[in-house]
Write a protein that binds this DNA or RNA. Structure first.
Lengths: 339, 339
DNA sequence: CTGAAAGCGCTTACAG
DNA sequence: CTGAAAGCGCTTACAG
């Protein structure tokens, strides 16, 4: 920058003003500086800027498993939304490790990022209450860490209820839930499941499986395999807490020659791209990831811009933002083949 | 850091030595400093360190589509490998945009990362030759940008040949290739396909589809749907250039009631997790992503540590590293049901 | 509208 | 083995 200033015969202040898009620079001055900028091939060092200004232009995104389709999609959506704002995303994959989650909460990413978007899995709300993070943070998904920080995601109770209501409409009555209510996420989806059954006056089969942490294909497969090996009566539908579990379930069903949806219908939540290509394709509740990403970034901005003139250094007003979702009906649940 | 120094009654130099793990510090001094470090809750500002030392501890990874399972897996592997070295990964998704790729090549990520791992899609080798990047760079995958920079990935010719040889062993003779040879990646996989057929003395059907850039489920589905609608004779096998295309192909096959593998066998490359759960499960060539990530990081390190005592500021010795792969045989190609 | 100068939090020759 | 000091590339009151 000094070189540029010399080349243009101005002070570094002026160069800084130009590259930062500061308004009060005369056009001819701006043109002259721009010329030198180009001539010397100047490239802003964002780190140095960050050191001085306290802002880096980075946002960190921490997810449990980047390779799980849902999180990969989410990350993609966040990167897209961030790019629109000219900010770069730093992706961290916690691998479901609670130590890593705790480290992130205590600011492990924070001197390199202006804020963090955090999709937690195991983090106890008590920890958050004990040592509240002192940096801009927004939680993604349902994991509950108390209400000190905003959270954005779909209304899981409603999403689960929607999926189960759909199965009921198809005539299913023995609907099993595949997942587990050990996490906040699980509790909410289980609650939606119960609500739908109660409202319809249908007896709960209430059969819950799969460890809390791993809502993946392997767990879904294993759980349903065991169900099929058992001697009990088959359910006539499975509501999986997410698509990964549903894909695993479908695999077990297909392998055993159980017909989907005729013998057992299937519906779940996430609507990952893969679900449109399974055999049969999966009915799933689709969150709008672009909206989630957009809102999350906005809520982060609002925290960054804190500390106004007055004294209002109070805690962030926690908000629970429920983003829209829709049910995508596919063959896995379509009993009466209407189309 | 100054505060810590004061608290411990030493100079900042000493504090810096301690936190950097510099060897020549007396144990008692180290202990005293450590005590102050803990007492004050010191946290290193890596940006400031980077500004001074010229190294940030970040590595950038640029992939075409983060949400494509293969790239999500790759990113996960790179993040894991980087974590072992104490470095953080910055993930960029180019969305297959050549402008973005060019920007990355001209150093768009470089003042924030010590080096970049780049899985390019469209970047012309000529561009790279014209303005060779002046930062540590290693190319991932087969995209050819000339030999100024190391490249790591599987040997695609061999991988494709392996898959096709396997189909031939199953008795298939009319083997169609699903993909396109417009990219380097495509050329190599097409070449492997040809080699396998020639070696077996089998006539090429040589039927190539799907745009260069989008080897995804939708393209695979569409291409095979059109094939099935055509009046020509059906192939007895499809070799898809990657799993995403294969998943799409399988979807079209299943929808048309074509039996896999009995009518048409199917094999591809990537072995993404999804492929173990399709119906039937997909035969695929599995690259070892952990090895790729590990080697890529090592090759980056070697470039960073350049400029030895002597004058050898010559160009990096470009190396083509071929990482191991193995064929995972699943039901989609198993003609004689041996297990 | 523009200059001269301090400082963000570190590291690293240079002395001792 | 440790100190005092310069400087990485920026931004930003403070003057003018």
């Amino acid at each position: 920058m000094r070189d540029v200033a010399e080349h243009a015969g101005v002070s570094v202040r002026t160069v800084s003003n130009v590259v930062s898009g500061y308004t009060h620079v005369s056009p001819e001055m701006r043109a002259r500086v721009q010329h030198s900028l180009d001539a010397l091939g100047y490239k802003m060092d964002y780190l140095a800027r960050g050191l001085r200004s306290g802002r880096t232009g980075f946002v960190a995104l921490a997810v449990p498993y980047l390779a799980e389709p849902y999180f990969a999609e989410l990350a993609q959506a966040v990167i897209r939304a961030a790019a629109r704002r000219g900010i770069t995303v730093l992706v961290e994959s916690t691998e479901g490790d609670s130590e890593t989650e705790r480290r992130i909460l205590s600011g492990g990413l924070t001197n390199v990022a202006d804020g963090v978007l955090f999709s937690a899995l195991t983090l106890p709300a008590a920890d958050v209450a004990a040592t509240p993070p002192d940096f801009p943070l927004v939680m993604l998904g349902e994991h509950d860490v108390g209400d000190r920080f905003p959270r954005v995601g779909i209304d899981n109770v409603a999403a689960a209820r929607t999926a189960v209501e759909h199965l009921l409409e198809q005539g299913c009555r023995r609907i099993v839930a595949l997942g587990r209510n050990g996490s906040e996420n699980g509790r909410q989806r289980a609650e939606g499941y119960r609500q739908a059954l109660s409202a319809a006056g249908v007896r709960r089969v209430n059969w819950l499986v799969a460890p809390v942490k791993d809502w993946n294909r392997a767990q879904g497969h294993e759980a349903v395999r065991q169900l099929l090996e058992g001697s009990g009566p088959l359910p006539d539908a499975i509501f999986a807490f997410n698509d990964a579990l549903a894909v695993g379930a479908l695999h077990a069903l297909n392998a055993s020659g159980v017909r989907v949806p005729d013998d057992v219908a299937l519906a779940s939540i996430d609507n990952v791209p893969e679900s449109a290509y399974t055999h049969p394709p999966l009915t799933s509740v689709a969150p709008d990831l672009d909206v989630i990403a957009e809102r999350a970034l906005t809520l982060l901005d609002e925290q960054t811009g804190r500390q106004p003139a007055g004294e209002s250094a109070g805690p962030v007003v926690a908000r629970r933002e429920s983003t829209p979702f829709r049910l995508v009906v596919r063959a896995s649940s379509r009993r009466q083949h209407t189309d």
